[in-house]
């Protein structure tokens, strides 16, 4: 799975941390950090995290193939 948090919208409620502590964590009192590409074992927890975010700041995407671009 892939994860993106809009950290402008995020207000550090930490609901994602409760739901998926292996994916989201706080650095200091209010600064959210996270793994953008969590492993498949965390998928359920990550989905719960996205659902729980009070300001809906979390976007999820499927674990897609890395893009192999044509070299220019």
């Amino acid at each position: 799975m892939r994860v993106l948090v809009d950290l402008n919208r995020c207000q550090s409620y930490g609901q994602c941390v409760f739901a998926a502590p292996e994916v989201f964590w706080f650095r200091g009192a209010e600064s959210l950090e996270y793994d953008h590409v969590p492993d498949a074992e965390s998928d359920r927890a990550t989905e719960r995290a996205a659902r729980a975010c009070p300001v809906q700041a979390i976007t999820l995407g499927p674990a897609v193939e890395a893009i192999v671009g044509e070299a220019g």
Partner: peptide, 28 residues
């Protein structure tokens, strides 16, 4: 987080929908 070593620089990829269906010219 990357400079501090808490997240690898390979763990920052942006999510994209499966159906983007685009031609990517990377390194171009």
């Amino acid at each position: 987080a990357v400079l501090s070593g808490r997240v690898g620089s390979d763990r920052l990829l942006l999510p994209r929908t499966g159906e983007l269906n685009a031609r990517w010219l990377l390194g171009a």
